[in-house]
Write a protein that binds this DNA or RNA. Structure first.
Length: 305
DNA sequence: GTCCAGGTCGCGC
DNA sequence: GCGCGACATGGA
């Protein structure tokens, strides 16, 4: 057993920034290889670096909302070069959307008043993954399945193809596309029971590895949302719901992800339990301009209490 | 056993 | 462009 070292990295987001609400903002917080430690209000993640190192991240926020800080404890065996440390910093910055400017959204929240004002204290950031590949795979695995099924499939995928942290079979990182692409579609389907989604994931991994699909470049592109959406819809397994979810993950909130959850909530809250049709349902959030997704998300969140 | 899930695909019209 | 059945899997 190699000796474990801990390297600490501190990130200083601009205020307002609420760590807990970002870390625990949606299902991604508890979807492997992430885990939420409620006691310590800490996000743990088995994290694979580009060069193949696997480290364990323990991420916490500071108490102060005036001068917010993110404390990352990196547990590792091999030495962590400054380059690797900087990569980890960038990954955490992406996951927590440290550089996303929500001031325009907050202005709309203040106009609305009431429950919406609470968000302006640095809420509204929804956790991302450190790679868009991981976000796309996970999003495809949320379609036509209950949340329990999504968790099971993601865990199975990680168990079969994720690299372990220090040889610990129970702590594995999210698989690199190369690991999935290395096996045949048949072996992949046998190794991980993803149902009809299996071929989509395998094909996606092969496309990413071959360079036919430049996912990470796409995620960083400044294409207009409508064109970006077209590119996302071209991915097998990604339809209107998944595309809107992925746009949200990329910080574009103009599209609503219409699914059973959306239908149920909007019907009940605004239309006496009747589904009014997609156009009318979406019109509920029309005046949120390019912040519709966040408005819907926190409409549910605030209604749940 | 039967139904169906935070949908999407591929067809036929 | 729109409607419709099929789709793998396992939990409810």
């Amino acid at each position: 057993m190699p000796e474990i070292q801990t390297t600490r990295i501190t990130i200083y987001p601009a205020a307002p920034f609420n760590f807990e609400s970002t870390a625990y903002s949606h299902g991604w917080s508890v979807l492997a290889p992430n885990a939420w430690d409620k006691e310590r209000q800490a996000l743990r993640r088995v994290h694979r670096l580009e060069q193949g190192h696997v480290v364990l991240l323990d991420i916490q926020g500071s108490a102060s909302s005036e001068a917010p800080e993110i404390h990352v404890a990196v547990h590792h065996a091999e030495a962590l070069s400054p380059i690797l440390q900087s990569q980890i910093r960038n990954d955490v910055v992406q996951m927590f959307r440290v550089e996303e400017d929500l001031s325009e959204f907050y202005a709309l929240c203040n106009q609305r008043g009431g429950q919406w004002e609470r968000l302006t204290a640095g809420l509204g950031r929804l956790l991302r993954s450190s790679s868009f590949f991981e976000d796309v795979v996970k999003t495809i695995l949320t379609t036509n399945i209950q949340w329990g099924g999504t968790k099971r499939m993601v865990e199975a995928l990680i168990t079969a193809f994720g690299e372990p942290y220090l040889g610990d079979e129970n702590l594995r990182a999210f698989p690199a596309p190369e690991a999935i692409a290395a096996v045949s579609a048949e072996s992949f389907a046998e190794a991980v029971r993803l149902g009809y989604r299996g071929p989509y994931i395998h094909h996606l991994a092969r496309q990413v590895v071959s360079g036919d699909l430049q996912l990470e470049a796409l995620s960083a592109s400044d294409l207009p949302t409508s064109e970006l959406k077209k590119e996302l819809l071209a991915i097998k397994g990604v339809g209107p719901y998944a595309a809107a979810t992925l746009l949200m993950l990329l910080g574009r909130y103009d599209e609503l992800a219409v699914d059973t959850e959306f239908r149920k909530f909007v019907s009940e809250k605004y239309f006496q339990g009747e589904w009014p049709g997609q156009q009318k349902a979406m019109s509920v959030y029309e005046d949120w301009e390019r912040w519709k997704y966040l408005a819907f998300w926190f409409d549910i969140y605030e209604s749940d209490g």
